[in-house]
């Protein structure tokens, strides 16, 4: 299982990752909704957004850049919500989307706890769009496009377990530099993308008030009763039916 480690402290905000994403995936540029800068946001054509964050500190402001994209959950809610299985968690790590079978219901967008998927509202045959973690590259042993172009090693690609180890080692080596938290280790059951940072995650646009349980697991606690309840009802109703039938026959027999 592959993953990517994002070290917020190492990013200089060059935006190479966002450009590489556009180039490799053939995505359009839209000046009105940029992928880099103060107004950067995820869009159907922005699978990666590099946000500019100025954070107040005691010693003055600090400038940080935060790359946002699909986190590629270990147990993705989008895949769980999709009733045609257009989303799939691959064994290589990426959560990929199959536009050929998508019916456009957009349950995935409601289900995603990180609000990542975007919809092509203005297309004739609209698709759901999000980072595919460069599945073809990863399958061939290459890094995702964004990681391959990062000049400062703010992004590193590898086996998720090794990256998790690396993240913890970096935090342990410089405990004064980093917040002691690997974002993505446990969030919603864990994600293939991991983040470490020197500024609190809630200040750079990450939700930290989240469950450690994956969404599919959480909903599974309820939905796992579907079969027993259905079977039970069937049994009860069948029993009632047989009972009333026999009683009716008995009454007729008088």
């Amino acid at each position: 299982m592959n993953g990517v480690l994002v070290d917020i402290t190492r990013c200089v905000g060059c935006g190479s990752c966002a450009v590489a994403c556009k180039l490799y995936n053939g995505l359009n540029w839209d000046v009105a909704s940029p992928a880099i800068g103060e107004k950067a946001a995820l869009k159907a054509h922005n699978w990666t957004a590099v946000e500019t964050r100025r954070i107040g500190r005691d010693e003055g402001k600090v400038l940080r850049f935060v790359k946002k994209q699909c986190l590629h959950c270990l147990e993705p809610a989008c895949a769980s919500a999709c009733f045609v299985s257009a989303f799939k968690k691959t064994r290589e790590g990426p959560v990929v989307y199959n536009e050929r079978i998508c019916v456009g219901c957009r349950y995935c967008m409601l289900a995603c706890p990180f609000s990542i998927p975007r919809y092509e509202w203005d297309a004739v045959y609209p698709r759901v769009r999000k980072c595919q973690m460069c599945f073809f590259r990863v399958r061939e042993g290459e890094m995702p496009a964004c990681v391959s172009v990062c000049p400062t090693q703010a992004l590193s690609f590898g086996k998720r377990e090794e990256l998790l180890h690396e993240a913890k080692a970096r935090i342990a080596a410089e405990p004064n530099r980093y917040i002691n938290h690997v974002y993505g280790e446990h969030e919603y059951g864990g994600t293939s993308w991991l983040y470490i940072s020197d500024v609190p995650f809630e200040e750079i646009g990450f939700r930290t008030d989240v469950s450690k349980e994956s969404i599919p697991h959480w909903t599974g606690r309820v939905t796992k009763w579907t079969l027993p309840v259905a079977a039970g009802w069937t049994a009860i109703l069948t029993a009632l039916y047989l009972y009333t039938k026999r009683r009716a026959e008995a009454e007729e027999g008088h």
């Binding site: 590489a20 556009k22 180039l23 490799y24 995936n25 053939g26 995505l27 699978w47 299985s85 257009a86 989303f87 799939k88 691959t90 990426p94 990929v96 989307y97 199959n98 536009e99 050929r100 980072c131 595919q132 460069c134 599945f135 073809f136 590259r137 399958r139 496009a145 391959s148 172009v149």
Partner: peptide, 11 residues
């Protein structure tokens, strides 16, 4: 599912 998983451009 992979057949439409991005990668329509170049690097």
């Amino acid at each position: 599912a992979e057949l439409s998983a991005g990668g329509e451009g170049w690097l």
